[in-house]
């Protein structure tokens, strides 16, 4: 086999409101960049086939699986990770508080990705039905909860709208 010489590229990201300019190996996945270079370890990795959604972050406001994006592809983008959320519930957003109130997490490993996916869902659909919630988090796996309490958590957030969120 041939070993490719690595190529380093300068990128500039705004992560959770802070701008940073760094040089990355061209093949670095965004999730690894966030976890290992920005040291934002709340974004997790659960697979290598884009199935689990543990790595979900917001890129320019839309949810993406950060394991399927190269760091260089995110150049110039604004990224929000779980660490970047804040809201009126003792610092939590309604989605985070919904997960707390409705026991939407057990081991917590899928949770940051779930919360980001749900946050994105509610931005697009402020009042989803149960089915729409289930479909909205379809790209995220949870092995602990069986999903019902996650769905209830998202419903809790719907019923407790935050000023400035969605409709």
């Amino acid at each position: 086999m041939t070993v490719q010489a690595t190529r380093h590229i300068q990128i500039s990201l705004t992560v959770n409101g802070y701008r940073s300019t760094t040089t990355v190996d061209a093949r670095t996945l965004l999730v690894h960049h966030l976890r290992e270079h920005e040291r934002l370890t709340g974004t997790h990795i659960g697979c290598d086939t884009s199935n689990c959604g543990a790595c979900t972050v917001l890129l320019d406001g839309r949810s993406v699986k950060s394991c399927t994006v190269l760091a260089v592809q995110a150049d110039g983008a604004e990224i929000t990770t779980i660490e970047g959320l804040s809201g009126p519930y003792d610092g939590f957003t309604a989605v985070q508080e919904g997960f707390r109130q409705c026991h939407g997490l057990q081991c917590g490993y899928c949770t940051p990705g779930m919360v980001m996916a749900a946050t994105s869902l509610l931005t697009d659909h402020p009042d989803p039905t149960e089915e729409e919630i289930r479909l909205g988090i379809e790209g995220n796996m949870c092995r602990c909860t069986g999903y019902q309490m996650i769905v209830e958590s998202v419903r809790w957030a719907v019923e407790h709208p935050e000023p400035g969120r969605g409709g």
Partner: peptide, 19 residues
């Protein structure tokens, strides 16, 4: 009773080995 574990796990403040 609501869980003591949740605040850290909901904010990315958990510590998993790979972190």
């Amino acid at each position: 009773v609501l869980r003591k574990e949740d605040p850290r796990l909901l904010t990315g403040g958990g510590t998993f080995v790979d972190d």
